[in-house]
Simulated assay, not measured.
Amino acid sequence: MAALWELICHHTYRGIPGVVVDLSPSGASHGQVFGLDDGDFLADGLATGSGAVRFYKQDGRIRVPTEATPWQSVVGVKGEVTLRRQPSIGFIIDSDAFQFHIRGNTLDMPVAWFGGYPNQNAEISTVFDSVGPQPYRIPSGPWVTLGFMHDGFGTMELYADGEVVARRTGVYAPVKSPGGAGLSIGNALSSGGLSCSGEIDDVKIWRLNPRRIDDEFYSRPMDRQTAECWKRFRQQIEDAFQRHPDCAKQIGRLVQEAVDSFIRQANAQGPETQSRLLRAAKEYNRLWREGKIDSPEMADVFIDLIGWLRIAGIAPDDNAALASLKNSACWQLILGELTPLDCDRQFMTLLRVVTDNLGDGRRTKVTTA
């Protein structure tokens, strides 16, 4: 199975005071120190020699630039911070794309906020989304490892020492990428006196693995001839986009608008529709990995989902944004330069079922050779 997460930032704060090195595979998230002295970098943290940074000054923070490639496509994000705090409110991590903090009236309860695009924000806290009988409270004094997660679609979670302490499910907009202001650790992005007031030993941030779709796609049982067929088809798409760069941009924008529109409509229908979408996605992934692409079970996943969406008033074939994509001159131009994908019988069978049911709502039977 494809790795779901990709580590894009890892700080340990050990070594030379004031020098913050990114230990993630890309090495693209080194820290820039503001308002801190060498004495604020400690040799010992959670363990002897592990290193830590003390945050208590009004403008003390570590900025992480986010211009590098790993930050340009986030979609889903996960973070983990090992810290020891004093009783106070403040930011642990801050950016215009996601935040992890202890906020005003929540006192010692963690909150994570995520900025979706275009303007679909989401938030989770142990105040309103606790999974236990009592909301989790961050202790003052001992070391604790806290975490947050937004999977880019249907689940947000908060963690404490490896245990889930809050969870919220639904259909959420993907997390946008941080802007040019970057990421702030230990204080608010604008350093306005909202320090986390404590010591941070370790910071890790992951993004949703951008290669997961390709990895999952090729995780299905596939013979060599079919794999080579898909390789040729994808190369045709890349070549067509290179020949028509303006169309490539337009199609990318229209696809995003269609996705955003669908997410907004699904969110408006409430938890039952959101739950059905999540169940359909999980069943699709299972059948895909098992190679049951053209099976009656796979057809049922799409037929039942399309039927439910029609009842809920958000049928994909009635989506104006999707219609704009399908009717665009660029879409027709690119399709016209591609060779029909007839070499993958299983996939084409599934595609026929989906398009038939989107077209007129009739239930298409699946027959396998």
Rank of each mutant, 00 (worst) to 15 (best):
P142A: 04
P142R: 01
P142T: 01
P142W: 00
P142K: 04
P142S: 01
W143N: 04
V144P: 00
V144C: 02
V144I: 15
T145V: 04
T145K: 08
T145N: 02
T145H: 00
T145G: 01
T145C: 07
L146P: 04
G147M: 01
G147E: 11
F148K: 03
F148R: 00
M149I: 03
M149E: 15
M149Y: 04
M149L: 15
H150T: 06
H150E: 08
H150I: 07
H150Y: 06
D151T: 08
D151M: 09
D151H: 09
D151Q: 05
G152L: 09
G152D: 07
G152C: 07
F153D: 14
F153P: 00
F153C: 04
F153M: 08
G154E: 07
G154M: 08
G154V: 02
G154T: 12
G154C: 10
G154Q: 13
T155I: 06
T155K: 15
M156L: 14
M156R: 14
M156D: 04
M156W: 02
M156T: 12
M156A: 12
M156Q: 14
E157Y: 03
E157T: 13
E157W: 03
E157Q: 15
E157A: 12
E157N: 09
L158Y: 07
L158W: 06
L158M: 12
L158N: 10
L158R: 12
L158K: 12
L158Q: 08
Y159T: 10
Y159F: 15
A160N: 10
A160I: 00
A160H: 07
A160M: 06
A160Y: 07
D161V: 06
D161C: 05
D161S: 14
D161Y: 07
G162M: 11
G162F: 11
G162H: 10
G162R: 11
G162W: 09
E163G: 00
E163F: 00
V164M: 10
V164C: 11
V164N: 10
V164D: 09
V165K: 04
V165E: 05
V165M: 03
A166Q: 05
A166W: 07
A166V: 11
A166M: 11
R167E: 13
R167N: 06
R167H: 06
R167C: 05
R167W: 06
R168C: 09
R168N: 13
R168A: 15
R168M: 13
T169N: 07
T169G: 01
T169S: 14
T169R: 13
T169H: 03
G170D: 12
V171M: 14
V171G: 01
V171Q: 09
V171H: 02
V171N: 08
Y172R: 06
Y172C: 03
Y172N: 08
Y172W: 15
Y172G: 04
Y172A: 05
A173D: 13
A173V: 09
A173H: 13
A173I: 04
P174W: 04
P174T: 00
P174E: 07
P174Q: 09
P174L: 02
P174D: 01
P174M: 01
P174S: 08
V175C: 13
V175N: 09
V175K: 01
